[in-house]
């Protein structure tokens, strides 16, 4: 290649790569801009706390926010202890190459890839029908719990495994029992990683729509118990956009609330992550 044509090639590829990067940025800014532009005008405290009226065209999202919190609460309430227990089992009670551990890990990897709509089908069949919970916040929350479990377990196991062997050995050398070691040494040391994993799962749960349509249902009234059907923010956006003519303004505002929530969760998570690494970089 002559020096001339090499320069042409170098400039050409540089231009292409900058163009590709720009093509990714533009729709992103466009989307965020649209959300802010159209959602901000409808956003107010009364929108956040009042009940929807006229199928959601008017009024706010109070009950929907409540249902969302309950669904996500049920989800995390079930998934966190289960995830923590499984992660402890995988990292503390089995060797890394143990057959049972590998089986569990493999099945969780597969579960992590299952599309959310399939979780919706499963939740509908198991929780709504077989267990007779019907369209309810409980059904929705349990379905989401199955969905976020693989993420929680994987991040939790990784943070337990990141703890050095020396820490465990010195705990054992002090004669601490396994439960005490876990409570006083391992859990605190793994806490930042556990929190990051938890916020990841939380984000997934808040963002989910497809798995909830046939499990927690569409009802937009204030839920009175976990057995009531309740509509999540994401389902509300879907319903307003697809089934309610003139629902777009409120859909924009709801989307802004949802994205704002996720942004806060995301910032919290990356704050923990950076704090963690900066703590770890301090000389011992």
């Amino acid at each position: 290649m002559s020096r001339q044509s090499r320069h042409v090639q170098e400039y050409g590829t540089t231009a292409i790569i900058w163009m590709a990067a720009t093509m990714v940025v533009i729709p992103f800014l466009w989307l965020i801009g649209d959300l802010l532009w159209n959602g901000w005008t409808h956003l107010s405290w009364s929108f956040v706390f009042s009940a929807p009226q006229n199928a959601g065209r008017e009024g706010g999202i109070g009950p929907i926010l409540m249902s969302t919190m309950l669904i996500v609460g049920v989800c995390m309430g079930v998934a966190v202890p289960m995830g923590l227990g499984t992660a402890l089992f995988l990292s503390e009670y089995t060797r890394h190459d143990h057959v049972l551990g590998r089986l569990i890990r493999g099945s969780l990897d597969v579960l992590a890839g299952v599309p959310s709509i399939v979780f919706g089908l499963f939740g509908n069949a198991l929780f709504c029908q077989a267990l007779g919970l019907g369209f309810s916040i409980l059904s929705g929350g349990l379905t989401l719990a199955c969905m976020v479990l693989p993420i929680l377990i994987r991040t939790a196991e990784e943070s337990f495994r990141a703890i050095s062997r020396e820490q465990r050995l010195s705990a054992a050398a002090l004669g601490l029992s396994q439960p005490t070691t876990i409570r006083t040494i391992l859990l605190p040391a793994a806490m930042p990683g556990l929190l990051v994993g938890g916020t990841l799962g939380l984000g997934r749960a808040f963002a989910e729509t497809a798995a909830l349509i046939f499990t927690s249902g569409y009802v937009d009234r204030m839920p009175e118990s976990l057995m009531d059907s309740g509509r999540s923010l994401a389902v509300h956006i879907y319903d307003l956009a697809m089934n309610v003519a003139g629902g777009n303004p409120n859909a924009f505002a709801t989307a802004l609330v949802l994205v704002g929530l996720l942004l806060i969760i995301n910032l919290f998570s990356s704050w923990i992550a950076t704090r963690w690494t900066s703590l770890n970089q301090l000389p011992a």
Partner: peptide
């Protein structure tokens, strides 16, 4: 991290 329903909504409207 943006929910798929928000992508869908934006696609539908814009």
């Amino acid at each position: 991290g943006i929910p798929s329903v928000v992508f869908g909504f934006w696609g539908l409207v814009v």
